[in-house]
Design a binder for these strands. Structure first.
Length: 674
DNA sequence: ATTAGGG
DNA sequence: CCCTAAT
């Protein structure tokens, strides 16, 4: 099933020369120093230009000639206007956006580079080199990726050499690369000729194409290929569907039959792809109430309604939601009428809303049109503070449920506070108005969450915890403490209706819950008991809520990328002490050992955590005591941190110098030998 | 899986 | 804390 759809425009035949690998020490610093590197830079920008054109081509119905004046800074005005006429009015702010070189930024590392185009704050397009594996993680971040593929390095290098030089009527553009402003000379005529397809045609020239390039045309779905004749290259366009998991299906599907879609006359799909592209990239979530619905529209609404707490979170959720969304939709009845669709949408929202932690769903009518001064909220679920439960492996699921229930009631009994979280930050000032806090603002309403907090009574936090045991305020023990198991977000109610009656449809148009259940693990995963997961938040669902709201997000087996963010667990002084001691002994490069030596039975502290803690400790030690936050670490400890840090840094430096000497020795002796 | 670093 | 590249 196609869960995720991605367009890739392959520029077959040209390869961006690979970037020289910087030495490890120079990582992340100045690239693009030599002429060759400039070439690469130029290449990327050129490709970006083409990409911009391509996107523009996809969206504009005007003749290519109108590009003429904007060739160096392709604009999407045409596109937006076009869509405006055809569809509904869009946000004027978006209409004014255009893709210029300043919107391009280079990302990646020494080996893998990709270029990012950000037409507006909400959309990104990536342009990447073919060496990036299609399932490379960065691609996850983008709705669409324009991937430069190609096997023939020579051609490209040559192509570049033709492109550079002769300043001609070069046009200078600012460009942001890794935060460094640069000026780059463009030969606008050549670029435009590239765009318009009149550049000296390398296809027919002395540079034969790689013959055994695997066919790259693969239409994994029913979207046709756009017209790409403006490209001077032998181009291939592939439409790749990404399957459920890692299976980047590339040409996995038999696709010979689709090859015909790649013939010169590719008119047919133009319109459809145009709409798809346009709506995906440059349209703000449409108003869903009063018009025909497109899938992409729904996706936007879907996506925007449930903003996450942080950007990273939202990035992670993105893929998940996208999948779920597509999945649900692909099962929906094609001809469903608007009403049915929008109610379906609300189902999805409900499911996702509670599955992720953005536990508030703006009520159906409010999200896009709260013109009046009232803020309409409907809380679907609350977040409950973290619970820790200790329970023997041999315990039954039933007893687990009981334990959880007791734990939760224990919290509730102690009195409750309600916390308000807006865009990841707690809103502490109770006296602020909603307006002042920004809660009234439309696009913030969906970033709003509520959480239940135990009443800050002095009862719980008093007992000093054993050093490397959970120091959570809520720690529930059940029978023999053997393993400390964390549980996925678990519905507190009886989950039976969820699982046992997957057929239960919430509506009458044929979307059954099992679609959703497919995508989410069963609420009680018995294996969780054995595997002590890292996902431990517990979501309690208020009584009024429908069963769907209790579906946990966490996926255990696969898709662990989408795992929930771990809760923050500040290091206690005793932990810091142990860490310092271990590092004093073992050094800073052996976090695994540090973990084993000092934190072996603290399951929630990974070696990465320890390394991070050390990093912050070093930082803390360097700053003034006034700037420090959190539990105050004794100065004595911090001094030890500094000492150890200095000591081991020195060790490392010495080691490096030694190694350097060795290699240069070898080098010179080789020279002499020659 | 570990290490190193950036965010 | 998270994410990711590199090893």
């Amino acid at each position: 099933m196609v869960l995720h759809r991605r367009l890739e425009y392959g520029f077959n035949g040209y390869q961006v020369p690979s970037f020289p690998r910087a030495s490890r020490s120079a990582r992340g610093r100045s690239m693009f120093k030599t002429k060759a590197e400039d070439n690469q830079l130029c290449a990327f920008e050129l490709l970006a230009t083409v990409a911009g054109k391509l996107l523009q081509e996809g969206g504009s119905s005007q003749s290519p000639s109108h590009i003429e004046d904007e060739r160096v800074q392709p604009s999407i005005h045409g596109l937006v206007r076009q869509e405006q006429r055809e569809e509904e009015p869009c946000d004027p702010e978006v209409c004014d956006k255009s893709v210029s070189f300043s919107d391009l930024s280079l990302h990646g590392n020494d080996r893998n580079k990709y270029l990012k185009i950000t037409p507006d704050p909400k959309h990104e397009v990536a342009l990447a080199h073919s060496s990036i594996r299609p399932n490379s993680s960065f691609l996850e971040k983008f709705d669409h990726a324009v991937v430069v593929t190609g096997e023939t390095r020579k051609e490209f290098v040559d192509f570049l050499s033709k492109t550079e030089g002769s300043p001609g009527n070069g046009k200078s553009c600012g460009n942001v690369l890794n935060g460094i402003e640069r000026k780059v000379e463009y030969d606008s005529e050549k670029i435009s000729s590239v765009i318009n397809g009149t550049f000296p045609d390398i296809r027919n020239s002395e540079y034969p194409m790689e013959k055994d390039v695997e066919p790259r045309v693969c239409l994994g779905s029913n979207i046709e290929v756009p017209h790409t004749s403006f490209l001077p290259f032998k181009t291939n366009v592939k439409l790749v569907s990404k399957d459920d998991d890692e299976n980047f299906s590339g040409c996995a599907h038999p696709c010979t039959g689709n090859l015909k879609a790649f013939r010169p006359s590719l008119r047919i799909g133009d319109r459809r792809i145009r709409r798809l592209l346009a709506s995906k990239y440059w349209k703000i979530a449409p108003k869903l109430n009063d018009r025909k619905l497109h899938k992409s529209d729904m996706w936007h609404a879907f996506r925007n309604t449930k903003a996450s707490y942080s950007r990273q979170r939202s990035q992670r959720n993105f893929a998940y939601r996208r999948k779920l969304f597509d999945r649900l939709l692909s099962k929906s009845v094609e001809g469903a009428h608007n009403k049915a669709i929008s109610s379906k949408k609300s189902i999805i929202e409900d499911a996702i809303g509670s599955a992720s932690q953005a536990s508030l769903v703006a009520s159906q009518e409010s999200p896009y049109c709260s013109r009046d001064s009232r803020v309409k909220l409907s809380i679907k679920s609350f977040r409950v503070p973290e619970l820790f439960i200790e329970i023997p492996e041999t315990a039954t699921v039933g007893s687990l449920k009981r334990t959880v229930r007791e734990a939760v009631t224990a919290i509730l009994a102690g009195g409750l506070h309600v916390g308000v979280v807006l865009q990841g930050k707690k809103v502490r000032d109770d006296n602020k108005t909603l307006l002042q806090s920004g809660i009234s603002h439309d696009d913030k309403v969906d970033a709003l969450g509520f959480l239940l907090e135990p009443n800050p009574s002095p009862a719980s936090a008093s007992a000093p915890q054993p050093m490397f045991h959970e120091d959570s305020p809520l720690y529930v023990t059940c029978d023999i403490p053997q393993h400390l198991a964390r549980y996925p977000k678990t519905p507190v109610g009886d989950p039976v209706p969820l699982v046992a009656s997957p057929d239960r449809t919430l509506t009458n148009e044929g979307t059954s819950i099992d679609n959703i259940l497919d995508a989410v693990p069963s609420p009680i995963d018995t294996t969780a008991v054995k595997t002590a997961q890292d996902c431990r938040a517990l979501v309690a669902t208020p009584t009024s809520v429908e069963p769907l709201a209790a579906i946990p997000l966490h996926r255990k087996s696969r898709q662990s990328k989408l795992a929930q963010r771990r809760i923050r667990r500040p290091f206690s002084v005793s932990e810091v002490e142990a860490l310092v001691q271990a590092v004093e002994k073992l050094g800073t490069g052996r976090w695994r050992d540090v973990k084993v030596h000092a934190f072996d039975n603290a399951r929630h502290r990974t070696y990465v955590d320890l390394k991070d803690k050390w990093k912050t400790l070093v930082h803390t030690a360097k700053i003034s005591p006034q700037q420090r936050r959190g539990e105050t670490v004794p100065q004595e400890l911090l001094n030890r941190v500094l000492a150890a840090h200095a000591h081991w840094s020195e060790q490392q430096a010495m080691l490096q110098i030694k190694q350097q000497n060795e290699t240069s020795l070898v080098f010179t002796s080789n020279l002499i030998a020659d």
